[in-house]
């Protein structure tokens, strides 16, 4: 444990006005598959044998999809959103200190409150703390590479870490992943469940990444790239990147005396 690292501060944001939720049956907005990577994307070779070939069966949302697990602060520990401290043994991890912050929103622009956000990444040298990662870059004894946070009542989250490094992987002989952080997000219903990856503004590996370029929509790809947010950085301590995550919107439904889905 390193007593020197100053505490992680809470870099707040201005918030845009959300749209009113459309009335309806409480179901989620239909997923626009055109902005997601196709299941079968031959340029990302691992997808070839792991992609369903039949059409997905479209299912109007039932109670099984509208509901999902509920998490609370009891599920987390106090250092879970501080990757600089949560695995530190005898000092800080090596690398560029950064804050990553943003909001989890739905497609109406409303914050998704109290939802679990989990994140994991390689260390500054591009090496994962994982028994299956054999890349020659060294493990950092002070860096685990994972954390999690619960969004606040406006959907806001933040965490502190070091910037991950790029690393090579077996796709083409000379394929490299751009620096990235993996994100897992829940939302309020199981149909909103999403895993994605955040990339960093200006990374020259972005346009040549076989995984990132599975996304057919240029704007959707750009939305995975977090801009440097100098205003949220901590002078003489950490740079900041901002990454907003949008989950599927939900129609309202009326029962008893209150609305749900908004």
């Amino acid at each position: 444990m390193n007593a020197q690292a100053p505490a992680l501060r809470d870099p707040r944001l201005n918030r845009p006005e959300p749209l009113p939720p459309p009335l309806g049956d409480g179901g989620f907005f239909q997923r626009d598959r055109a902005i997601h990577p196709p299941v079968h994307a031959p340029g990302y070779k691992s997808s070839v044998l792991r992609s369903p070939r039949q059409s997905l069966l479209s299912l109007e949302n039932s109670i099984s999809e509208i509901t999902g697990p509920v998490f609370g602060h009891n599920d987390l520990g106090p250092l879970d959103n501080d990757l600089i401290r949560n695995y530190a043994k005898d000092g800080d991890p090596v690398g560029e200190r950064i804050i990553v912050h943003g909001r989890v929103l739905d497609e109406t622009g409303r914050g998704v409150p109290n939802t679990l956000v989990e994140f994991w990444q390689a260390n500054a040298g591009g090496r994962y703390r994982h028994k299956k990662d054999t890349y020659l870059a060294p493990i950092d004894p002070n860096f685990g590479g994972c954390g999690r946070a619960l969004t606040d009542d406006t959907g806001y989250y933040y965490f502190r870490t070091v910037k991950p490094g790029p690393y090579p992987w077996r796709n083409y002989v000379n394929s490299w992943r751009p620096a990235h952080i993996h994100f897992s997000v829940f939302g309020s219903g199981f149909a909103q469940r999403l895993i994605t990856q955040m990339y960093f503004e200006g990374d020259p590996l972005i346009p040549v990444c076989p995984i990132l370029t599975t996304i057919p929509d240029k704007d959707a790809l750009d939305r995975l790239v977090a801009p440097l947010d100098l205003n949220a950085s901590t002078p003489f301590d950490s740079l900041a990147y901002r990454f907003d995550i949008v989950l599927r919107g939900q129609r309202s439904t009326y029962f008893e005396n209150r609305t749900a889905g908004n």
Binding site: L19, F29, R31, D32, I35, H36, P37, Y44, S46, S47, L105, D106, E107, T108, G109, W120, Y128, H130, K132, D133, H182, S184, L194, I195, T196, Q197, I211, L212, I215, D217, D219, A220, L221, R223, L224, I245, V246, L247, R248, G249
Partner: peptide, 14 residues
């Protein structure tokens, strides 16, 4: 309306 964030693979180190 905003657009949903695109999915990406969970990768081998999920």
């Amino acid at each position: 309306y905003l657009k949903e964030t695109a999915s990406q693979t969970a990768g081998p180190y999920v």
